[in-house]
Design a protein around this nucleic acid. Sequence first.
DNA 1: CGCCTTCCATACGGGACCGTATGGTTTGAC
DNA 2: GTCAAACCATACGGTCCCGTATGGAAGGCG
Lengths: 192, 192
Amino acid sequence: MAVVRRTREDWTAAALAALAEGGLAAVAVEPLAARAGATKGSVYWHFPTRDALVEATLLRWEHEHTEAVIAHAEQGATPVERLHRLISAVVRPERGVDVELALQSSLGDPLVAAAVARVGSRRMDYVVTLFTQLGFTRAQARRRAATAYSIYLGQAQLQRANPAVVPRTPAAKRAYVADVMLILLAQPDGDG
Amino acid sequence: MAVVRRTREDWTAAALAALAEGGLAAVAVEPLAARAGATKGSVYWHFPTRDALVEATLLRWEHEHTEAVIAHAEQGATPVERLHRLISAVVRPERGVDVELALQSSLGDPLVAAAVARVGSRRMDYVVTLFTQLGFTRAQARRRAATAYSIYLGQAQLQRANPAVVPRTPAAKRAYVADVMLILLAQPDGDG
DNA sequence: CGCCTTCCATACGGGACCGTATGGTTTGAC
DNA sequence: GTCAAACCATACGGTCCCGTATGGAAGGCG
């Protein structure tokens, strides 16, 4: 008889999956256990409370995916190339975007709000340095970074809420990314 | 004795308030009634079910606020001015943005998803016409509209999740809006 | 004033989930 | 093989919410 044993990581993995599918509310001890073919007893042995499970799950996501976007961008040689990779990552979403959106959808929870805030400012810092590398002044870089990150977030939402208005064919996506790049690199007004 | 009577509209109003504060989950019959100094009996007289209340609330929001942004923008004389009013509306948020975000946060619910989709495409249509009025080709207008709306959505999210990275002082806001305008009106590449 | 309709409070049953208690089974050390 | 620790199932009490049932008060109308 295959008597299965679960680790802490098994449960955070299951929680991540549930989070991606059904949002924070889906990270519920009993349904989670049932889906894993186990019972609450297991979960409550590994975690003192549901919040502890949520927190561990968020921490795991933070460690695994915070730097993911940045790391992917950093593979670009020039700043322009890095920005391009950054923008493309949203328009051509990979894995993990579901969790991203689910979290943005549960900012009511203080644990989630804290995690999202940490990740957000970390990313913003990166994009700001990117734009300073591109020759923008500090203030101007901050503005462009805010816009770039807004486009990132907004685009992610649009794909979920209004997939019809988002570019779908590869050609359309390429054209769209190109236009966003052109936009973000536009010469600013000369008043800092 | 001020024996209060509630109308259907009283309840959708209360639901809207709760929606803005606590998201869709806060639109719960019993808490809503308690907060209004009434009981479930009243709610369930006006609405057959909770979903009916939610649907009526969404419909009300849709009617009251879908066109609100557009109407506000339409007070601008030129297309550029209209776009400017549109962008400013996010950076300098008025009332109703809370509900907007709460809904975007509850796309899991099919009722919400439908309402948000309707409003979204309605707004996109408007922004597309705005960009065509500005002399962009149809394809290019669609791209810029998608970007503009993404900035709108993303900026709204940023204000909630990372208020630190968003321009705060009036001067900073003005500079930011100016830069976004400059960006959105940038001369596109000649192939679209 | 009587009466009917509109509106609402109270009371109840049910479901989903959290957290605790407790005892049983498996595992590894010796 | 013994034993303690690790792991988990079962069962329970509690909370919050949904929805129903039912009786009663409020307001118009004859």
